[in-house]
Design a protein around this nucleic acid. Structure first.
Lengths: 164, 164
DNA sequence: CCAACACCGTTCCAAAACAGAACCTTGACA
DNA sequence: TGTCAAGGTTCTGTTTTGGAACGGTGTTGG
C-alpha cells in the first residue's frame, strides 16, 4: 500500500498517521511545542538533512498543521508556527512524552518537567473519559460502529467481533 | 541522523518515536487494540508487505510492546498481543483517533464510536492535568528542566528561553 | 500416497526515500 | 569586493520499501 492512499481510509488513525506518522514530523512537532520556529534551528536541533526537513515542513504546512509566515522582509525570511489544528496535537505529544518517561526510560530521570500554570503543580497527562472523567483503560472501552463506517468494511467484523 | 541513535537521546518523545514512530507500527498498534493478533490478519487488513510486517512485529516484540506466543503446536503458530507496556500506549492511540476525527475528517462522520463500560456513555478522550483534573492546553503548561536533562544540553536553552 | 490448503514467514528485484555534502539566492555588513 | 546568515535546492550513493514469488510445516481430503 502506498501512503497517499492512507488519507482516504475510513480510519481516523490512518488519516492522522498520513499527516504526522513519520518520525521526523513528530520530532518537528515536539520542537514546535518548545517554540522552535526557524528552519536552521530545526535543522541543528534535529540533525535531520535539510532536504528532508524542507519536505516535512512543506507537508505540515500543506496539511494545515503549521503555517509559514515572514518574520522579516529584505531578505525575506520565514518561520513555521503551529496553527490551531497543530495545537490540537498537544495531547498526542504529551501522551508520547508520558509513555517515554514511564516505559522507555530504563530508570533514567525525566529530562523535562511540566508545570500547570492553572494549579501550579508538576503534572502528568492523564487521558480520561469526557463524560465521567474517569481515567481510560483499553479494557473498559467498547468499540461500536459509527455512522461513518462504510457497509461491508472489514472493520465492521472486527468491531462486532470485539464486542462484549 | 540515524534511527538507532534516537533511543539514546535525552528526549522522551525521541525515545518513544524510535519505538512506534513509523507509520506501520502505529497502524499495527491500532489493530492490536482492535484485537487483531495474527500475521495474516494484520497483513490482509493493513495491506503492508509481508516483509515489512515481519520486521515491524519483530521490532515491537524486541521493545516489549508486543509479545509473541504460540496459540497452537503442530504446526507451530504464533500470535502477537499487547503487553502491559503496549497497553500503556492506549492514550497515544486515542489521541491520534480523536485528532483524526476532529481535525482530519473533512466533515466525514466517525467510523467508530467508543463506549465507556464504566459510565455507559459514548466518550471522547480528554487529556487532563493529573493534579487539578483540568483539560490541558499547551499554552497553560510551562516546561522546566528535570533531573534527567544533561548539563549543556541544547534543550536547556530552549526550556529556559520558553519560560514565562 | 498425492494434492490442496492454511499460516507464518523469507527471498528477490526494482522503485522510492534518505543521509551527507555541496551549492545557490537574497540581502546585510565591512 | 569579500564575508556572513538564513533558507532552501541539487547531487550522489546507500537504505528502505513495495510487490510478488517462494519455502517450511503440518492438516485435511481423495
Amino acid at each position: 500500500m502506498r501512503w497517499d492512499m492512507l488519507d482516504e481510509e475510513a480510519c481516523s488513525v490512518a488519516r492522522t498517521v498520513s499527516v504526522i506518522g513519520d518520525r521526523w514530523s513528530l520530532l518537528i512537532l515536539r520542537d514546535c511545542f518548545l517554540k522552535v520556529r526557524r528552519f536552521e534551528q530545526f535543522q541543528e536541533r534535529l540533525g535531520v538533512t535539510r532536504h528532508v526537513l524542507a519536505d516535512r515542513l512543506k507537508k505540515l504546512v500543506k496539511t494545515g498543521v503549521l503555517v509559514r509566515s515572514a518574520y522579516q522582509d529584505r531578505p525575506a525570511r520565514y518561520d513555521y508556527r503551529l496553527t490551531d489544528k497543530g495545537m490540537a496535537l498537544y495531547p498526542v505529544l504529551m501522551a508520547l512524552v508520558h509513555w517515554g518517561d514511564t516505559h522507555g526510560a530504563d530508570g533514567r530521570a525525566r529530562p523535562v518537567h511540566y508545570r500547570h500554570r492553572g494549579c501550579g503543580a508538576l503534572l502528568d497527562p492523564v487521558t480520561v473519559c469526557s463524560e465521567c472523567r474517569e481515567p481510560l483503560d483499553a479494557r473498559d472501552v467498547a468499540v461500536e460502529p459509527g455512522p461513518g463506517l462504510p457497509e461491508g468494511h472489514g472493520l465492521l467484523d472486527l468491531v462486532l467481533g470485539a464486542r462484549g
